[in-house]
Design a protein around this nucleic acid. Structure first.
Length: 268
DNA sequence: ACTGGCTCCTGAGGGC
DNA sequence: TGCCCTCAGGAGCCAG
């Protein structure tokens, strides 16, 4: 399940292979992923890739005539390969370069997306909260935004309109690190608790990106598993196991259709 | 304006 | 060994 760190690591992994290269051909082996794949993407053919950028969990492959907007969904991955290598199962998109390489998109569950924008705008990119690793994502911002909200704090920090890029795994982990109970109403957190939580979210995301950075060769996490950060996880997927802090069994509960792991003793 | 629930898809994993 | 059933999960969309 690519979360923001995985997307960032993917960006760092593919950028050196793509930027400055010319697109030879785009091939789609499925008409749709999460949404229909727009034929306009073929306008990239013959264009030079100027830059790869990231907004939330979307990657933008930028050319002078427009940009491909790529989302990895929960099982998507990007690899740069020799173009002669035959596509495998679930290899849905090829972006072939004139230098004999191909950017290949694999996505078993097809929750991902390839979209097209000519002016940098797209409905998928609209109405999003700040990036978590910028100063705009602060305790003051969150305290103000959460005022009067009764929604569970876990759902709140996973809401892209509040802040982008905090997925289920990192929401669980950062709430434990901040010792805040996931079912608390977002509006009930004291300012000091936002200070702690915001700090933990930033830290856990930054650490995960750094970990990914040490294994850049494997930037494409093709399976749905947590990946390189797995050994760092304290809560996620550990129901029944002892809390690393107090030893009480870790609880599991659905919050907003999402599996949630927490320690009833430590998280208040 | 808020909030909760549904939906897409397929592989993995549990039960028998 | 193998089949069948259930479920996870990002995020847009819809209904109440």
């Amino acid at each position: 399940m690519p979360e923001l760190p995985e997307v960032e690591v993917s960006k760092m992994g593919i950028s050196p292979h793509l930027v400055g290269q010319t697109v030879a051909k785009l091939t789609f082996r499925t008409p749709k992923l999460r949404w229909d794949i727009p034929q306009d993407l073929k306008k990239m053919e013959g264009q030079v890739i100027r830059n790869i950028s990231r907004r939330a969990k979307y990657l933008l492959i930028e050319t002078d005539v427009g940009s491909a907007i790529v989302h990895l969904g929960m099982s998507g991955s990007l690899r740069v390969l020799d173009a002669e290598i035959a596509p495998a199962k679930h290899d849905h998109v090829d972006l072939k370069l004139t230098n004999g390489k191909v950017l290949r998109y694999n996505d078993p569950r097809r929750f991902g997306a390839w979209l097209w924008t000519e002016d940098g705008h797209h409905a998928a990119l609209g109405a999003m909260g700040p990036e978590p690793l910028t100063e705009a994502f602060s305790a003051d911002y969150m305290a103000a935004k959460a005022q009067g909200k009764r929604v569970a704090v876990k759902q709140f920090i996973m809401d892209n309109k509040v802040v982008v890029g905090v997925g289920n795994i990192y929401a669980n982990e950062s709430l434990f690190s901040a010792r805040i109970h996931p079912t608390r109403a977002a509006g009930s957190l004291k300012r000091q608790e936002w200070v702690l939580l915001v700090d933990e979210i930033k830290q856990v995301l930054a650490t995960a990106i750094k970990q990914g950075g040490t294994t850049l060769k494997d930037f494409a996490q093709a399976d749905g598993k947590p990946g390189y950060f797995a050994q760092e996880l304290q809560m996620y997927g550990k129901a029944g196991q002892p809390c690393p802090d107090c030893g009480e069994p870790i609880e599991e509960q659905k919050i907003g259709q999402r599996n949630t792991f927490f320690c009833d003793q430590c998280q208040l």
